[in-house]
Computed example of a mutant assay.
Amino acid sequence: MPPHCVLWFDARCPASRRTLELLRERGVEPSLRRFLEEPPTVEELDALLRVLGAPPHALARADADEYQALRLSERTAPDALIRAIVQHPRILERPIVVCGERGLVARPPERVSELFPAEAGMV
């Protein structure tokens, strides 16, 4: 039985919808974390970054209007970037999948297969 999964999800995002479809094809019904409707907290993002083993800049969408308007860049301090994501969640990359103690940014959505190594060739 696969571990419980959480999908950081935006229904308007084709990659989010495709990732949900791929998880369901594997028999996984993830909890949907609708981060645009309920922005994440600093603590929640810190925990997410620990699971992903990634710096905050890896989760930022540099092409997002808010990212540009706030003049964020690779030089933005990590804590400042986290605060910006909390205040402007559209900056957060999507989709993100966390299954148990593992997680990844599912871009492209087929990367979700990396969370299921025994079945890696199935997607």
Rank of each mutant, 00 (worst) to 15 (best):
A77Y: 01
Q68W: 01
A80F: 02
R75M: 03
L36G: 07
L45N: 09
T76C: 05
R18Y: 00
P56R: 13
R26H: 05
D65Q: 14
A11T: 04
C99G: 05
L36C: 06
T19L: 01
Y67Q: 09
V28F: 01
R102K: 13
T19D: 02
D65A: 15
Y67T: 11
A54Q: 15
E38H: 13
E44Y: 10
F9R: 02
L70M: 12
V86D: 08
A69E: 15
R75W: 03
E66P: 05
T76H: 06
L22D: 00
E25L: 03
L92E: 03
I82C: 04
L52C: 14
E43I: 06
Y67N: 12
A64P: 00
V51T: 15
E93V: 06
L48C: 10
R24H: 07
L22I: 02
R90H: 10
C99K: 07
V86M: 08
L70P: 12
R17W: 05
T19E: 01
A60Y: 05
L49F: 12
R90C: 04
L48S: 13
F9Y: 15
A15I: 00
R17N: 04
H88F: 11
P40H: 08
D63W: 11
H88K: 11
S31E: 11
H57W: 09
I96L: 15
R94G: 07
I91M: 05
E25Y: 00
I91E: 02
A47H: 08
L36S: 09
D63M: 06
V86P: 08
L48M: 14
P95S: 10
I91Y: 02
Y67P: 06
I91S: 09
P40N: 10
V86N: 05
P39D: 08
E38G: 06
Q68R: 15
D46N: 14
F9P: 01
D79L: 01
A84C: 05
E21T: 09
L72S: 11
P89T: 14
P78Y: 04
E93I: 01
H88Q: 14
F9C: 02
G27P: 00
D10I: 02
A60M: 04
E44H: 11
I85G: 08
A58F: 11
E66Q: 15
L49T: 10
L52D: 14
L23H: 02
V42E: 14
A64S: 13
S16G: 05
L70R: 14
A64H: 05
L23V: 02
S73C: 11
D10Y: 11
G100M: 03
R33M: 01
R26P: 00
L49P: 10
P78A: 07
V97M: 09
A54M: 15
G100K: 03
L23D: 00
